[in-house]
């Protein structure tokens, strides 16, 4: 008792993660940046920074503002473009001791399909996340995740290019995230990342200027945790594919909430900016929690939130 091994591995489509913790795209570089501070073999995987068809300089500065209980960012998908990325960056991912998941962003359905196909073809990349929900690129970025039909088309086009697991990252800035989640699932997504950042802004009252060069940004951190948790809960009831729950997770307790709401794995982003040791602490804490309750696998608690409303819903369904 007590030292019994617990199973923290999870499955996202055909992808097996040794630990249920993914480092959020854009927060963790390519992993190497954090390697001096964390044992990368004890995290599930890294979702790499999004790459686009063409190189992008990114947004004007300032790109970051710390806010109460979180931060706003508007990086603007700064990246070297897929050609340069494949030639210079991807080969260096081979020796990482954790799963490397590519991330694709774009401005047209063709962009997504093209970059997804080329990225997924590389053996260093275990899976691909479709970032159809970046709030920080002029007009087009988030359009896909805000429209169920466009979501279906872009996911379908990417799906056709690869058999590797496809994770689709959804936006919280929508009225009915469950409807969009269903479209992504039906178009062939293997898993859903729920959610990207919440749109927001900040203004300097001395200069009357927006505090981000891009004017608006994406809010992350504990400020958005309840929003993200509800989104995970709603999506979990709408789809059967696994969910990567993310949004302000900083502790084992936060992580547990997301598993109970229906997430099979969790994403950690902004918390790494507080303390790079947080992902390992969460893994240790999850194992301890499971042992304490005589559970053997993290999978046993997924979606187990005991929700009266859900039972009522089930009851109504039976009456039909």
């Amino acid at each position: 008792m007590g030292q019994e091994t617990v199973d923290l591995s999870v499955q996202l489509g055909s992808l097996t993660l040794a630990y249920p913790t993914l480092m959020g795209s854009g927060c963790y570089g390519s992993g190497q940046e954090f390697a001096p501070f964390v044992d990368l073999s004890r995290i599930g995987g890294i979702v790499l920074k999004s790459v686009t068809r063409q190189p992008r300089l990114g947004n004007p500065t300032p790109r970051l503002v710390h806010t109460p209980s979180g931060m706003l960012n508007a990086i603007g998908l700064q990246n070297p473009g897929i050609d340069f990325y494949l030639e210079h960056d991807v080969a260096t991912f081979a020796d990482r001791p954790c799963t490397m998941i590519g991330s694709v962003a774009g401005f047209s359905i063709d962009d997504y399909a093209y970059v997804c196909e080329r990225l997924a073809a590389r053996r260093e990349i275990a899976a691909v996340e479709l970032n159809i929900s970046c709030p920080n690129v002029a007009s087009e970025g988030e359009t896909f995740a805000c429209d169920p039909r466009l979501t279906a088309r872009v996911v379908g086009a990417a799906r056709a290019t690869t058999d590797k697991p496809l994770i689709v990252k959804l936006s919280p800035n929508v009225t009915d995230i469950a409807a969009i989640a269903r479209q992504a699932q039906d178009a062939g997504a293997d898993a859903l990342a729920v959610v990207n950042t919440v749109r927001g802004m900040a203004i300097d009252v001395q200069t009357w200027q927006p505090r981000l060069g891009n004017v608006t940004g994406g809010l992350s951190g504990p400020a958005i945790r309840p929003i993200a948790l509800l989104a995970v809960y709603e999506v979990a009831r709408a789809v059967t594919i696994p969910i990567v729950g993310q949004g302000g997770i900083e502790s084992v307790s936060d992580a547990l909430e997301f598993f109970l709401a229906g997430a099979s794995a969790i994403g950690i982003g902004t918390a790494n900016f507080i303390d790079p040791r947080i992902p390992e602490r969460i893994v240790d804490g999850l194992a301890a929690y499971l042992r304490q309750r005589n559970l053997h696998s993290i999978r046993e608690i997924v979606g187990r939130a005991n929700v009266g409303f859900a039972n009522a819903h089930q009851y109504e369904g039976d009456e039909d």
Partner: peptide, 10 residues
């Protein structure tokens, strides 16, 4: 944000 080169915010 990160201070180690991971986020391209600075």
């Amino acid at each position: 944000a990160c201070g180690v080169g991971g986020c391209w915010g600075c």
